[in-house]
């Protein structure tokens, strides 16, 4: 057989208790393949608090510390400091939080850690609602979506919080988005993040078939369409928040197809979908403008750093 497209080593084992087609488990598997065995995880309340399995078992082959919901970034800060004081400077400490633990309850400690430029990777695996508690809206839930707290009669009216903008405003050395549908890109970004010192924030798009009312077999397809419809652009922000680079080399697919495939958007009327399409396009244009702007900043390296 030809060489594997992604590292063959597995640090996540079978037997975990994630739902069928869970994007968050694919994300974990890829991330650990990229980071390798010298990785310690801090996981706040989120699906992964359960997925890993019950005490005294774990489906991960790296050490893991469960922490309180709002405390991923601060616990990781302390863990990294502690390991360093033990003389272990090699271990990558990664906070691994859901969108609730990142966009909402954990944003304070995340902001604190990022401002301090703690030497951690902070990954938000975003499934766009509080899935572990049974699908309640978070500030990452996209506009138009149904959740149990944004019922069809009163679906979510506010747009998803722009976490990348927030993180870029912290001037941290590396920010990226990644999607489980693009494993090579995903792994490249985690490998790149591993080599950088300071706070690295990676926003991972991880579909939740259960919460999105989606057949599980479409999990990866949705992740892919989120990217190709520009709903979830793949990008990197380097040079401490200044250099923006957006991936554009794909064959675009309609936002409508992405929306239509998911039960959580089923109630949307044509004009509502249109409004979402416009919003997606506007955000995309803003992103491109920002990328363009960042190219012309004085003193920044004009060359692509690696990829």
């Amino acid at each position: 057989m030809k060489p594997a497209r992604i590292p063959e080593e597995e640090y996540m084992t079978s037997g975990h208790v994630a739902c069928q087609g869970c994007g968050a488990t694919q994300a974990m598997r890829f991330a650990l393949k990229a980071l390798g065995p010298k990785t310690a995880l801090v996981i706040p309340a989120c699906c992964w608090s359960v997925i890993d399995g019950p005490f005294p078992h774990s489906s991960l082959r790296v050490p893991l510390f469960h922490t309180a919901f709002e405390a991923a970034a601060s616990t990781a800060s302390g863990l990294k400091a502690g390991l360093e004081m033990r003389g272990d400077t090699e271990t990558t400490v990664m906070a691994w939080a859901g969108d609730g633990g990142t966009f909402d309850i954990g944003i304070q400690s995340l902001s604190g850690a990022a401002e301090r430029n703690e030497d951690i990777i902070y990954t938000c695996y975003d499934n766009e609602a509080y899935m572990n508690t049974g699908i309640q809206r978070s500030s990452s839930t996209p506009v138009g979506a149904w959740t149990t707290t944004t019922p069809v009669a009163h679906y979510k009216k506010r747009p998803k919080k722009k976490i990348i903008d927030i993180m870029a405003a912290h001037s941290i050395p590396y920010i990226a988005t990644a999607s489980v549908a693009f494993p090579e890109d995903f792994i490249r970004k985690f490998k790149k993040a591993k080599e950088i010192k300071g706070t690295r924030f990676i926003h991972v798009f991880a579909p939740c078939p259960t919460g999105w009312k989606l057949p599980p077999e479409l999990s990866v397809a949705m992740a892919r369409q989120a990217v190709t419809s520009k709903v979830f652009p793949l990008l990197e922000v380097t040079e401490h928040g200044k250099r923006w680079k957006v991936w554009k080399d794909f064959e675009p697919t309609p936002v409508r197809d992405y929306i239509k495939a998911q039960g959580r958007f089923r109630h949307l009327k044509d004009e509502e979908i249109k409004a979402i399409e416009e919003e997606v396009e506007n955000n995309w244009q803003l992103l491109l403008a920002r990328e363009q702007m960042s190219m012309n900043l004085p003193g920044l390296n004009k060359e692509d750093d690696d990829s």
Partner: peptide
Amino acid sequence: SVDDMLWNHT
């Protein structure tokens, strides 16, 4: 944890 999850035949 002291063991993996492989006992759990999902």
